[in-house]
Design a protein around this nucleic acid. Structure first.
Length: 520
DNA sequence: CAGGCGTTGCTGGA
DNA sequence: TCCAGCAACGCCTG
């Protein structure tokens, strides 16, 4: 029978989880005219009349919402105002801008069958983080004279319905390389090209355009970080300052019969009253910029940032920025982050460099985005050309012991508790539990661990998550699976307080090893 | 097919 | 404490 490790309640005695850095880290679609046949003449007259009148009149006339020049700004990732070229283009020369976010029920609505509270695809912590980001975006848009329009349903269908209903001639959204969005974009573009709607889809989620890098490398993605750096060079946009603020936005036009709501709460989504310990990290662009400012203002820290080497106890110290969840949802622009870092580097005598520097971390992110984009079946072992084919163990109970923090190894269990409650861990902590699962005695499939991370992490990012699991399971990029193959090695060098001990075994010898199947 | 490269982790000496 | 050297592995190149 499955038992809860008696160690679980003791885990909280361990050095507490990391704290934030502050306290510590054209053509209009004709549908509307056909639908409203009696109004064709009126519409045309209104248009003629309005041409000679001030724009204010246009804005107040709901009929003109459809006939004026309107754009849809479709938010997916990129939940921000600063450095948002799609939003900038949508508002340029438009009388109306419809900022839309579509709630995909698969991603948001409760799934009682899931192994942790949340939807089919995401844990509750990340869903809440997303909702907070949407509320923040809505607030910012309202300050600029606009608002966020929330719609529900299959995103492709909903968007096409909006395009029809509002008769806009421009659709703008941030380009996305994830397969989910690639498939969605194909569907939407089929419609827009048939309907003669202009689509503007700039690359602004990453520093570089993955397609460019792949092309420069002869059609294949670079497979080492160093070769990626050589191909990438300096980002082209760095020579001119990014647009980081907007003074106002065109108003939202008439939404017609489209069902629009405010940003829902967790309760609205059908989760009822949830009693759980929530992640301490608040979603949204405002919070992201606040954190960024705090991190970047410490020039010494930025200049000397180095991925902490060796000692995992460092993850209780102010070792990172905790900006990853904000980068994931695009609450923070990676390009703006990079620009801020370059500004600091310019003004100091000496600074660290990639791969260990802070800028190097952003480049790692781009590296994984590029490889992931250029590799079919990147998220699977089978059919993935990069992935070493390994006959992994398949054992649901061992997997459950790992994901439910019942392995019996306090260090591993503490990290898994942290993942479940906070949805975020230091990269060294991720490294430890990933190696434990795939390269330790469990020898379980990296796809299983990936699934758990993807669900529970608030910053889980398709390309980066899969890339790291490929790496740490020695399936790709790195292949020394004889390294750290046994959990004992986690105790060899460090005692429970994280102190370095070269030859350390006794404590771990006394640890119950639930993971070996005794108590499972 | 050999040898160099990129990579991580351990060791031993300064 | 820090750093160079080495081991070990698969990929890339000539």
């Amino acid at each position: 029978m499955v038992q809860v490790s008696p160690l679980l309640h003791k885990i909280h005695l361990y050095p507490p989880y990391p704290t934030p850095r502050t306290s510590l880290a054209s053509q209009r679609h004709p549908t509307r005219f056909f639908k409203a046949t009696p109004l064709i003449f009126d519409d045309a007259m209104q248009l003629l009349l309005c041409l000679s009148k001030p724009a204010q009149h246009l804005k107040k006339n709901p009929l003109m919402a459809a006939s004026g020049s309107g754009s849809i700004m479709w938010f997916r990732k990129g939940l921000r105002i600063h450095d948002n070229p799609a939003l900038e283009y949508a508002s340029k020369g438009s009388d109306f801008v419809y900022p839309v976010f579509v709630i995909d029920p698969h991603y948001m609505e409760p799934d009682p069958k899931a192994f942790s509270p949340g939807s089919k695809l995401a844990g509750l912590n990340r869903i809440r983080f997303l909702l907070e980001s949407l509320v923040d975006l809505d607030t910012s848009l309202k300050k600029l004279g606009s608002r966020l329009l929330i719609s529900k349903g299959e995103p492709g269908q909903v968007l096409i319905q909006c395009l029809k209903e509002w008769g806009v001639k421009k659709l703008c959204y941030e380009h996305d390389t994830d397969p989910y969005y690639q498939a969605l974009d194909i569907k939407v573009k089929e419609y827009t090209s048939a309907a003669g709607i202009e689509v503007f889809s700039p690359v602004s989620h990453t520093l570089f355009n993955p397609a460019d890098i792949i092309q420069r490398n002869g059609g294949k993605p670079p497979l080492t970080y160093q070769s990626f750096l050589k191909l990438a060079g300096q980002p082209s946009w760095l020579s001119s300052p990014l647009l980081t603020s907007i003074s106002s936005l065109p108003p939202v036009g008439d939404v017609g019969s489209c069902e629009i709501s405010e940003v829902p709460t967790i309760k609205d989504l059908g989760y009822g009253d949830i009693e759980q310990e929530w992640t301490p990290f608040r979603g949204g662009e405002s919070e992201a910029l606040k954190r960024l400012k705090e991190s970047v203002s410490d020039k010494n820290w930025v200049a000397n940032f180095e991925k902490p080497k060796g000692n995992p106890s460092l993850f209780v110290k102010p070792a990172t920025t905790v900006l990853s969840p904000y980068l994931k949802f695009g609450c923070l622009s990676s390009r703006y982050f990079y620009q801020c870092l370059q500004d600091v580097y310019k003004n100091v005598q000496k600074h660290t460099s990639p791969p260990v520097s802070l800028a190097g971390q952003l480049l790692w992110r781009d590296f994984f985005y590029t490889v992931a984009f250029g590799t079919p079946n990147f998220d699977r072992m089978k059919g993935n050309k990069l992935c070493k084919q390994i006959p992994w163990n398949d054992d649901d109970e061992l997997l459950a012991a790992w994901s439910e923090a019942r392995t019996g190894y306090p260090w591993i269990d503490a990290i898994m508790v942290q993942l479940r409650t906070w949805g975020w861990m230091h990269h060294l902590a991720r490294h430890s539990v990933a190696c434990f699962l795939t390269r330790g005695d469990l020898f379980l499939h990296w796809e299983r661990g990936r699934d758990v991370f993807e669900r529970l992490l608030i910053d889980s990012d398709w390309a980066i998550n899969n890339g790291n699991w490929l790496w740490l399971s020695c399936s790709s990029f790195f292949y020394q699976y004889n390294r750290i193959y046994s959990p004992i090695s986690f105790g060899k060098k460090y005692d429970p307080n994280g102190n370095y001990i070269r030859h350390f075994l006794p404590v771990l010898k006394e640890m119950p090893r639930y993971a070996k199947g005794v108590h499972i």
